[in-house]
Design a protein around this nucleic acid. Structure first.
Lengths: 254, 254
DNA sequence: CGGTTAGTTTGGTACTACCAATTTGACAAA
DNA sequence: TTTGTCAAATTGGTAGTACCAAACTAACCG
């Protein structure tokens, strides 16, 4: 009778969960197209026959999952949006942080991913992309020539190189994994750019890898990658041998 | 003893976000140890000087992130818990689902992960673990002998084998990635168990892989893995009989 | 001693009221 | 007509109250 009744009222416990699941399902089944918005909280409250707080909590859950973006004011509401890698990356970051996963494990994982990505990139990326990668690595080298070398800039450039390479694999999952790792736990990577000796070696290694990718030489490219992570591992070992930091301290909770 | 709270009241907009971040930070810095619980909603309401709804939404966000587990009743509340792979896996599943990632990409990613895991497992797992893996794959074969072959049971067993193998890599990240993939998008794997012809081949392949891992023969183990995914790819191709599977994905993720 | 029951704690829900941000549109001024 | 301004409507954000439901506690009764 009404076109607005794709949702059904709830009567049992955990209404909030149920509502969130219903809306989520509606979004994933594309009953509400991306870019459109959900009914307002007060409308949903009427449709679900529940309090507004429940609706708010449900929408909040969707927001946290990255399914919707919430805007205020007239014409505001919960707009369905594309999920970004950042959302999953954040979850991954939390996971790694709470599990106290050491940098060695991260490096090992990253190396394995990098190796596969490199092989795929050589096989699938076109000449333009490969040459662009070489150009970008050259820029990284040139940055080191300049007098003032900003560590943040170097790290950002390094991240962008990783993402660019991942895109060249033509498999979106690798691209996502790379973005998630970058977002989640790339801090130990910056360590490579802390010490001037490693800094240059790392940049040169990036350039060498890019050139070997452009030359369609997978074996040598893998050698470069291995060298990169050997460098990183050495760096990690040196850092973790340093004295204890102040990580554990005041536990003043009642 | 309401003297020194580790939380500070907020006055600007987005109080809910702010509170959630404060509590999350407190949890991650282990100011509240795992297993303990946050103050009750009403206490937090007093500490933060805000409405209870705000507190509820903040705690709800933490629950969605998997940081806390909420229990009702006296002695209830938000208990800090360990993040499980399921939380991240759910995010990944949403991501894959909304991005419409095809099974071919998933299979490719899984194969690359499987290869690395296998190498690591051969190098790091002890003899007991390897033999247990062989035993489990034998069970899978025996299942096929029986008359009633429940597809769900086979699939579950297959999942457990994957997780077991991932654990043997001794790198928790691979273990997590495997769990996430299993949770997120393992449905096309079941396709292998749909058709009787593939069913037996897959089980035999699992057994062969396990034996070669137990024999510490990485090259042959990798061959088995490759065979497994060749089988899977063939199955996928048969199912999606109209594949114009070239990269139409150039505009889906930007 | 053991089972039952009442009370307390705490999350779950409903409802109301008001604030803040944003869009829309009416209306006045140039 | 065009443009600037302001009021109204829409909608999320917050505060507060009240009550229900679940779960633990402890007193009470057999």
């Amino acid at each position: 009778m009404t076109t607005t009744s794709i949702f059904t009222p709830v009567q049992i416990g955990r209404a909030g969960e149920d509502i969130a699941l219903q809306i989520e399902a509606a979004i994933l089944e594309e009953k509400i197209p991306t870019g459109e918005r959900l009914p307002s909280e007060r409308e949903l409250q009427a449709q679900f026959q529940c309090g507004r707080g429940v609706i708010r909590e449900a929408i909040r859950a969707l927001k946290q999952k990255g399914l919707v973006e919430i805007r205020k004011g007239a014409k505001g509401g919960a707009y369905i949006k594309h999920i970004e890698a950042a959302n999953v990356g954040e979850s991954l970051a939390l996971f790694l942080k709470q599990k106290q996963i050491g940098p060695g494990y991260i490096a090992e994982f990253r190396e394995s991913i990098d190796r596969v990505i490199t092989i795929l990139a050589i096989a699938r990326a076109d000449k333009v992309e490969k040459e662009a990668l070489v150009t970008e690595t050259s820029k990284l080298l040139q940055m080191l020539e300049g007098p003032e070398v900003d560590k943040e800039t170097l790290a950002r450039h390094d991240r962008e190189l990783n993402i660019r390479l991942a895109k060249m694999s033509k498999n979106p999952i690798f691209e996502w994994v790379m973005e998630a790792i970058q977002l989640g736990y790339s801090s130990q990577d910056y360590a490579l750019y802390d010490q001037p000796g490693y800094r240059r070696k790392t940049a040169e290694n990036w350039h060498a890898t890019a050139c070997r990718i452009a030359d369609n030489d997978p074996m040598k490219a893998l050698n470069s990658i291995a060298a990169h992570y050997a460098l990183l591992q050495r760096c990690i070992d040196e850092i973790t041998e340093k004295p204890e930091n102040d990580a554990e301290s005041n536990e003043t909770y009642a």
